[in-house]
Design a protein around this nucleic acid. Structure first.
Lengths: 351, 351
DNA sequence: ATCACTTGTGGGAGCGCTCCCACACTACCT
DNA sequence: AGGTAGTGTGGGAGCGCTCCCACAAGTGAT
């Protein structure tokens, strides 16, 4: 925290030039020391470092940004109103991962919300002005123009949750397919045979992958997939209620439900209970996200956990690589940068 | 969102100089138009604006920052780990106020967490490099060195919740004294005579002021203040439980409790119920913050609402003024900038 | 016609860095 | 002896702006 050194002796903050004079070297040499170049003799480096310490020199970021054409800052862009952001622990966990991974670097993290049109307009300006070296994009909708804007501006970006199998941007995702499979396999292992699936919003790629995982798990276990057991939801509690009611109407003999989110499972659970079904005795229930609600439900909900903090870390890794690659106009577009992290089934009493 | 214009015609982004050439004017004139100077004829302004639009010109912030010695960015510094930040709706509301007030300006808001030592170190560097024009400080502890650092670096700053009556920084606060008074007066008006107070963490100035308000309300109503009815808490639920247990032990005849926060009230309520006291029949309960928990308690909790969003707005106003004042080396330290906003008692069934 | 302002405009200087070329020096081959 | 690398260093040029001085042109009072 200390910030000693000779402040304001000659008016303002010391400049690189003053450090050079003090150390008896040239400007270039000081710049090399500051930036950790190896092409400096030990003696010179020591002299410069002493001068830096004595003067309390801190590089002027604006000058550096202007000369080097970089900002040493990246933005975490959240295309949602603040309220939703804060409501979900998802973001908080992700932020934790991002922050921890960034703490070894000089990079500064900016949090930018772009929920309203006005905020989006400002964000566009901000990006056009290249005020960040890269962007982390979380929870983007499939039709969001933001990713394209970033591509057009040639700003390195990493997206959490690709928008399709052909996502052009670098992306980090959890294994939705595998997560869904593990949930269904778990239910099969518990002897359940009539397993329904309430999907997430199918415009979201991850929701589609979960359906794929559901199907394949059943097929590979030798079951036929009954499409009538798949009911579209939208990740919400209300959607879960609607879907569950519909499923019960069509298939009163259901003995298990795999829901694409915990809140959806919560909604489904209510409807099941109202219909006199006991959980897990009559119907087993599995959710997705392993959120707080899963632990607090009655009975506690079996759920698929995504390694969100780790995803945050992976996003930073990818982004920093992209940024570094960009500098020497490197091999663009050769390898697609897609990271997929494993999920984990957390078993509780609902199944 | 549109970002049309001729991109990359001559390699990179267009510069001010190119805009000037295109519009057939000098650099200075373009700068004046961009910055909204009135000393430009209408015809010239129109020509420049056309050129700006055609070229898709966006000012280079780094160059501007370097030349003008300002960054057009302010930081909201949260000296807490992210988790706590997200847990409390307080911050989300404040952010909303800050964001809305800022949306009319060119200022960019950065969110910086400084919970760990490492993060603090980075923040110190960041501030020393003057990467922001001003700082908003929320939830600072009395012994935090951050405010002094800001003063020393001569960075304009506004603090939410002054650390003492003699807070040197500009500050915005809600009327803790008045809020406490209104709570106690409300209880008195309901015919309660033995009113206890579970305080907040007394190292927090606002908590002290609430105690003052409690005392004065009783005194002015002609009651004697029984110091044994004041039990120190720490804003937490657990603190509320402990304090309530202690109060019941000392004063089984209490008929009302004013708690310094809603969670404290929740803790107190549990203990009261376990002791067989009915709320509000036997003991009336009033909290502070009007948080979500207040609405969801059984019975719903009467609570003192603070205008948090408005506080956020007021902080930005103060900060922008400070920043503007600083520019022409203005009258420093003459008037203390302290804003205190009124609270509102929200009556519910607990009292 | 002269002076004194006001208004609008152009462009030099300079903000504090990084990049890179030039150069001195050493070390080790032919 | 000459050549060829490699290493460490200094400093010019330039990044894209803002600031401010200089100056042209217009306006109105004397």
């Amino acid at each position: 925290m200390a910030s000693h050194g000779v402040r304001g002796r000659s008016g303002g903050r010391p400049t690189l030039e003053e450090v050079a004079a003090r150390a008896g070297v040239g400007r270039g040499t000081v710049s090399r020391v500051i930036n950790g170049s190896p092409r400096v003799s030990d003696a010179t480096r020591a002299a410069v470092e002493a001068a830096v310490a004595e003067l309390g020199y801190v590089p002027n970021t604006a000058a550096r940004a202007l000369a080097a054409n970089r900002t040493d800052a990246i933005a975490l862009v959240v295309p949602e109103p603040e309220t939703r952001f804060f409501a979900e622990p998802y973001f908080s966990d992700m932020l934790k991962g991002v922050g921890s991974e960034l703490s070894d670097t000089e990079m500064q993290l900016l949090l930018i919300f772009a929920g309203s049109d006005r905020e989006r307009e400002r964000l566009a300006q901000y990006l056009a002005a290249h005020r960040v070296d890269g962007v982390l994009l979380v929870s983007v909708h499939a039709d969001d123009p933001l990713p394209d804007l970033l591509t057009q501006l040639e700003i390195p970006a990493v997206i959490s949750g690709p928008r399709s199998a052909a996502e052009p941007l670098a992306s980090v995702d959890s294994d939705n397919y595998g997560g869904a499979r593990s949930a269904v396999e778990h239910l099969l292992g518990r002897g359940r045979g009539r397993i329904a699936h309430i999907t997430g919003h199918l415009a979201v790629y991850g929701a589609q992958r979960r359906v794929d995982g559901y199907r394949d798990a059943l097929r590979e276990a030798g079951h036929e997939v009954d499409e009538a057991l798949i009911e579209p939801g939208d990740f919400t509690e209300d959607g879960g209620r609607r879907a569950m009611a519909e499923l019960l109407r069509r298939h009163p003999d259901i003995d298990a439900v795999f829901a694409a989110s915990d809140v959806t499972a919560a909604g489904a659970g209510q409807v099941l209970r109202e219909a006199g079904r006991r959980i897990p005795d009559d119907v087993a229930l599995v959710g997705y996200d392993d959120s707080a609600i899963a632990r607090h439900m009655e009975p506690p909900l079996t759920s698929v956990r995504q390694p969100i903090e780790e995803m945050g870390r992976a996003m930073i890794d990818l982004l920093l690589t992209e940024i570094a690659d960009r500098r020497p106009a490197a091999s663009r577009g050769l390898e697609r940068h897609q990271v997929v992290l494993a999920t984990e089934l957390v078993e509780r009493r609902s199944s």
